[in-house]
Design a binder for these strands. Structure first.
Lengths: 342, 342
DNA sequence: CTGAAAGCGCTTACAG
DNA sequence: CTGAAAGCGCTTACAG
């Protein structure tokens, strides 16, 4: 059996309470006693049992991280490691541990969250996604468990703590950038519309067009799932339009890569024939040919600040909901060009 | 306060022991009682407290996943999300949870592992890397804690359970492939030599050359850190050699991308002027221009099988160490070509 | 500044 | 098939 607090207490000729207080570095214990107890802890190679400590103290010092369902996509998405890195870094700084969800379906994830929270496996939860009508989020709110969302909540925005980019504004900015290059016929390949981020970016796209007096065309709007499933024909349709687009906004770099590959096979040149810009600024985007113009949404900071918000919330559950907006900026590379004269 | 086993027991008119047995689905409890108790659990929305259960049962049903130090690299490495996906999937199938290390330095990671194991925070550990002279691994072995390594251990290979590719053989195969294309002057950009994987691949490279009767040239061997720090000049040196290489093997796709970008700036064409092949077969490798020939090492399977091995080990700690070798294969794309006539 | 005691919420021999 | 009791290894009022 591993050595326990009792062993240490006996060896140091103090009570277990005292050992416990030394572990917690309680100021009411004399330095002399602390030294003595610490020496014994070292000598016996004592390490407190987490379960016992957590049970007694009613806290776990761990954060639950919930990924979106369909793990293949969640993991493949370059967003994931980067946001995790941010979370990791903030958690580590506050000596918190990270517990990762493993559920694969929405149902499983929901059940996992219920048992994580009810079973007190974690002290707080970070939701790595924001979905329309999300049971999990509703549930967390209903039991008043400390949580924070990376992304803007679909409902109850004011009462939920979240960290997000201003996706609507960024998407509008992207459109403006293309407009400034002389483009008018701008296609938009958006993400899954069940995620709020996809809706926000679409809204930004539409608003910017409207501001510029350019009507929104349904045919210019695709979902990235279409491209990933049968990319060639979706892109084909786009390029057989009477006014074929001269610019295209992709929901993320992966989609952009996919599209560029398809275009290449059709001998459509980027950026000469069509300008392409996307979101997320993947590490590899600079290595693509042409190097991809992409929006840096500061994923690491999203994770970092989400964790800080959560830590605050856990510290003081009565704190009002906070919202942090992380800046983003267009990283100009070579996939966008001034519109040629038709 | 959350509802406890006592609440359920009272409500169902049984003892807490019985409720506990119903939770564990103990066959000695009658179906009738089970039904009754389950109904009450549902009605009261009861969820067992993990800490209490773990403390009493002396098991945590969670796996600790330890990443290599220097988290920036660990996270950025595309290896990470993919191996995690494999682990996740196997853990989930066995209803295990995942606890992630957050340490940033080797020292911190070591301390984390000590407290994870001594503090019984996890039942088993997966080491996501294998380093030369690794304290952490030595420690795990010394306390006889269930663990498995993704990668080949540097020492005590026979007594440590691990999952790995046969990196030596694969590297040799890569060389043979290039030889078959007529290349003789083959450069090798390897990984950090503190990792066993880097050593194995280098060994495979050297062996294959030797078998082919081609002397190993120190000038043809670089470490990827050199390329990442001051890529241009390292590559420059390579191309100013009297016999400049006509082929190059890169430790991973990221390094290959980096090199290709540098070459492009020098107007050295891949594959006309130099053939490039690398390891890991990143999702995006097919989208690079030219599409990158790369070795698929089946990262997902590495994670999956490592977890299975660990689960077995935890089930029966007396089991002898097992070693699983995961297959790998060269995915031929367009970055390698037959050697031109000089 | 320190200790004795109760309690955190479970599981599991032991007994019947 | 079920229950009473001890115990898992801590923390934390309470008391002095």
């Amino acid at each position: 059996m591993a050595t326990t607090i009792i062993d240490v207490a006996k060896e140091a000729n103090v009570s277990p309470s005292t050992v416990s207080r030394v572990i917690a570095n309680n100021p009411r214990i004399s330095e002399r006693t602390k030294q003595k107890v610490r020496e014994v802890m070292d000598r016996l190679d004592y390490h407190p049992n987490f379960q016992a400590r957590n049970l007694a103290a009613k806290s776990t010092k761990t954060i639950g991280v919930i990924m979106a369902s369909s793990s293949v996509l969640a993991f493949q998405n370059p967003f994931f490691p980067e946001v995790l890195r941010g979370i990791c870094s903030a958690a580590h700084a506050s000596k918190y541990g990270m517990y990762l969800s493993t559920g694969e379906t929405e149902e499983e994830i929901f059940d996992e969250v219920v048992s994580m929270t009810q079973g007190r496996r974690v002290d707080g939860i970070i939701l790595l996604y924001s979905k329309v009508k999300d049971r999990t989020m509703d549930y967390l709110q209903s039991i008043d468990f400390p949580f924070v969302v990376v992304g803007r909540p679909f409902e109850n925005e004011a009462s939920v703590t979240y960290v997000d980019n201003d996706n609507t504004a960024i998407a509008a900015e992207v459109v403006d950038y293309l407009l400034s290059l002389g483009h008018q016929d701008i296609a938009f390949v958006g993400g899954d519309i069940n995620y709020v981020v996809s809706r926000d970016r679409l809204a930004g796209y539409q608003q910017a067009l409207e501001t510029a007096g350019i009507p929104f065309q349904q045919a210019y709007y695709l979902q990235d799932s279409t491209v990933n499933e049968d990319g060639a024909s979706a892109i084909d349709a786009l390029f057989h339009l009477p006014n074929r687009p001269t610019a295209l906004i992709a929901h993320d770099d992966l989609t952009a890569y996919e599209i560029i590959s398809i275009l290449e096979r059709k001998e459509i040149n980027v950026p000469t024939d069509i300008s392409i810009i996307s979101f997320n600024n993947h590490v590899l985007s600079q290595h693509l040919r042409p190097p991809l113009t992409s929006v840096d949404i500061q994923i690491y900071d999203l994770g970092l600040e989400a964790t800080e918000c959560l830590l605050n919330k856990m510290d003081d559950p009565k704190l009002p909901a906070t919202h942090r907006i992380i800046g983003a900026k267009i990283i100009t590379r070579e996939s966008c060009a001034r519109r040629g004269i038709d």
